[in-house]
């Protein structure tokens, strides 16, 4: 059989094994449940508040926005984190020492990350539904929109996450990416509409995928009437497609180059040196 086909299949199996490993690990499970807990608490405290200019519940608006944010986070940070950690522990070098191992590794990682991102979305969505009303849960169109936004969101963010993970040398430097991400979330309209923000801040937010993932999710689950209070007074599906698509293209062009460069530089002594540095920092 063709070695590439074999490696892709092995990669899928790899993803499945890692999925089983992560969903049977207590610490990881807590990691998946924790955002749900935060979301439920947030929605609870938003009870009684409404989206400005409407009598629609603010909590019900936050739920889809948070799903979009979770997707962006899963794609950008979680993958970057895995790449950094697995470069440090030698997993990547192991893949490099195996014929077509890097391809298998990447297929496995994409399988793992996209499935956990979608699973996390469900884990957040289901309990929160008991707290909010007014979502379009019975409409097939709503689920279809949710699906394409989610898939496009993953295609837009996962390659970028791979680029970030390849450029960061040690786990400690992940904070350098986390902080700006947090800031970005604050003005991306996840927890509150950004209509009242200064124009330049709105413009910055609309450059990045987080805003559009939040908007896309809202367009799927919220009643159409709520489009009126979004920027531009519409769900702007074309623009969503455009911005997320542009990030996807950028990521897919950059990722292979950056990943290849990172993989080429990987060697036993680099892994050893990195570990020694990490040990020095611990003690």
């Amino acid at each position: 059989m063709n070695p590439t086909t074999v490696a892709v299949r092995a990669g899928f199996r790899r993803g499945v094994i890692e999925l089983r490993n992560t969903f049977t690990n207590a610490q990881d499970l807590w990691g998946y449940l924790f955002p749900t807990l935060i979301l439920v608490v947030t929605i609870f405290f938003m009870r009684g508040s409404t989206v400005p200019g409407t009598d629609f519940s603010l909590g019900a608006r936050t739920l889809p926005s948070a799903l979009g944010m979770g997707l962006a986070f899963g794609g950008l940070i979680a993958l970057a984190q895995q790449l950094v950690v697995e470069r440090e522990d030698g997993t990547l070098l192991r893949a490099k020492a195996t014929p077509n191992g890097m391809l298998g590794y990447l297929v496995g990682k994409l399988t793992l990350m996209s499935t956990t991102a979608l699973a996390s979305m469900l884990i957040q969505l289901v309990p929160s539904l008991f707290l909010v009303d007014g979502l379009r849960l019975t409409s097939a169109g709503a689920w279809l929109t949710l699906l394409w936004v989610a898939v496009l969101g993953l295609v837009a963010t996962l390659p970028l996450g791979a680029v970030i993970g390849s450029l960061i040398e040690s786990a400690r430097n992940l904070g350098l990416v986390m902080l700006p991400m947090m800031g970005l979330i604050a003005f991306s309209g996840i927890f509150y509409p950004i209509n009242g923000y200064p124009g330049w801040l709105q413009a910055v937010a609309q450059v990045f995928p987080i805003y559009w993932l939040g908007l896309g999710m809202r367009s799927a689950l919220l009643p159409d009437a709520l489009a009126a209070v979004e920027l531009g007074g519409s769900w702007r599906h074309l623009e969503t497609l455009g911005v997320l698509g542009a990030w996807a293209v950028l990521g897919l062009v950059l990722a292979p180059v950056v990943l290849r460069r990172m993989a080429r530089r990987e060697s036993g002594s680099r892994v050893a040196a990195r570990r020694e540095r990490a040990m020095r920092q611990v003690f």
Partner: peptide, 27 residues
């Protein structure tokens, strides 16, 4: 075989060898 690998801690021994071995089958 390099010095000090620490990878795949959650994998089962047999599973890891089967997985890595499968990449060699076409050769």
């Amino acid at each position: 075989v390099l010095q000090s690998w620490r990878d795949h801690g959650r994998w089962r021994v047999q599973e890891l060898l089967t997985h890595l071995g499968s990449f060699y089958a076409p050769y």
